[in-house]
């Protein structure tokens, strides 16, 4: 049986508001912490954008290396990064 990759829902399926974390569990000793925690800003991005940021970090923040890795042109990668920055700025405003 293949394992299903669960996607963390970030928006409420009922009213579309942003979700928060209510409970944290230690899978080793089963300790549970109850509360209300915000998601980190980066987790509000799409999986695709998160992977882009991780890859960008891995190549040392070089757009040129990122362009080579993605087989895209330099300005295309720069435009993608600028779009992600705009999205992060819009989260900040909220």
């Amino acid at each position: 049986m293949t394992a299903i990759e669960k996607k963390m829902p970030k928006d409420c399926p009922s009213c579309n508001s942003k979700m928060k974390v209510k409970k944290l569990v230690c899978t080793h000793c089963s300790t549970e912490i109850d509360g209300l925690f915000n998601f980190p800003i980066l987790s509000s991005l799409s999986n695709e954008d998160q992977l882009f940021i991780i890859d960008f970090m891995k190549v040392g923040g070089s757009l040129k290396d990122m362009a080579t890795k993605m087989k895209l042109s330099y300005p295309t990668v720069r435009n993608h990064l600028d779009e992600i920055i705009d999205r992060i700025k819009s989260f900040d405003k909220k």
């Binding site: 042109s73 330099y74 295309t76």
Partner: peptide
């Protein structure tokens, strides 16, 4: 084609 080619290659 500029999604794939720009910079020195295109010049």
């Amino acid at each position: 084609p500029f999604d794939f080619i720009a910079g020195w290659t295109s010049l």
